[in-house]
Design a protein around this nucleic acid. Structure first.
Length: 331
DNA sequence: AAAGTGCGCAACCGCCATCTA
DNA sequence: CTAGATGGCGGTTGCGCACTT
């Protein structure tokens, strides 16, 4: 035979705790310790399940719980630990004295995760998400698959569609801009400045950590493109490259040096002589695009109605002889 | 002023490993 | 040894509040 049932589920109160219930629970535990959570509710005079009591105590009533906003150091630590441990909230919580796993989990889901997404960083892998960026840009899945092959990333439609739900995060699109920057300028020694300005603006994050990730990502992306196309980047600079893509909400500097902040994705027309102006990243001093600005208009309208890749059909891509057939993909 | 929308967070749910009668 | 309870954990839900339209 096993144990007796934990508690009578019938008639046990659920929902928010009242101050009176809190006092009963705190008084009891301070006098007797929690002992068996199973017997605690009856002994403390509470009409609650032991599990509910334990949760209330560990997540809210425990005297050593730290209240208030997470500090910058705590944010850094959470992000770093999450990159190592994943969603092991209890393990992360043991390294943040006074914080509960529930609190850290909530803070991650409501703040940190969104912040990483807004920076174009996958909060699961902690690496820049090229595939997500392409999805956000409204690319066809075939091209997405090609991009996945180029970057040696596994691609599957199910996860891609799931990711597409996150496409409202504007800054992910920035990696597309980086892609074209790579095509036009070669592997940048300095990553996408828009992205860097976002990172720079996020004083609560370990900037060097993400700069390193981005550098590594862009380097491998550039290598993949070079290897796959059989061309050096200098070849790509001959003019047969896509026009500058100005993403929603990103500031862009045109050939005349005029900086504009665009509200919708646009393709800057190529110059009539066939040469294409190089992409110019916005000034790092430019105000970063906060998550709020990216969600003010969702990706379905910002990227799908007017894909930044519109107009690419007319480009001369013959010089790029890739196994993947970029021209076909774009068509 | 009222309705709609989004966000933050406390609490619940369900699963799993461990414990125990 | 085994069935079933317990404790712990991660994922999810739903309420209340603030802000926007």
């Amino acid at each position: 035979m096993g144990r007796a049932p934990c508690c009578d589920e019938i008639g046990v109160k659920k929902g928010p705790w009242t101050p009176e219930e809190d006092k009963l629970l705190v008084d009891y535990i301070q006098k007797n310790g929690h002992g068996s959570w199973r017997r605690l509710p009856k002994l403390a005079g509470l009409n609650r399940c032991g599990k509910s009591c334990r949760l209330r105590w560990t997540n809210y009533l425990r005297p050593d719980i730290k209240r208030g906003r997470f500090t910058e150091e705590e944010e850094k630590l959470i992000i770093h630990l999450h990159s190592v441990l994943g969603n092991k909230w209890s393990s992360i919580a043991t390294r943040l004295p006074g914080r509960t796993d529930n609190e850290i989990k909530n803070y991650w889901n409501t703040h940190l995760r969104k912040r990483l997404l807004s920076m174009g960083i996958d909060p699961v892998t902690h690496r820049p998400r090229a595939d997500l960026s392409l999805l956000a840009a409204g690319l066809p899945l075939s091209l997405l698959a090609a991009a996945g092959a180029l970057t040696n990333q596994q691609f599957d439609v199910t996860s891609a569609l799931k990711l597409q739900a996150d496409a409202a995060q504007l800054a992910k699109v920035q990696l597309v801009q980086t892609l074209f920057q790579v095509l036009s300028n070669g592997v940048p020694t300095t990553p996408n400045l828009d992205l860097m300005s976002l990172i720079g603006s996020s004083n609560s994050l370990d900037q060097q950590y993400y700069q390193g990730l981005i550098n590594g990502s862009l380097g491998s992306l550039g290598s993949a493109l070079t290897t796959s196309s059989g061309l050096g980047f200098n070849d790509l600079q001959g003019g047969n490259i896509p026009p500058a893509v100005c993403m929603d909400g990103l500031s862009s500097t045109d050939v005349n040096g005029t900086t504009s902040n665009l509200n919708s994705p646009k393709v800057v027309p190529s110059e009539s002589n066939g040469t294409v102006p190089k992409l110019v990243s916005s000034s790092p001093e430019e105000k970063p695009c906060l998550p709020e600005c990216s969600t003010s208009h969702d990706a379905s309208t910002s990227s799908l109605e007017s894909s930044p890749f519109e107009g690419l059909e007319g480009l001369n891509l013959d010089g790029i002889n890739t196994e993947l057939g970029w021209k076909d993909l774009l068509e």
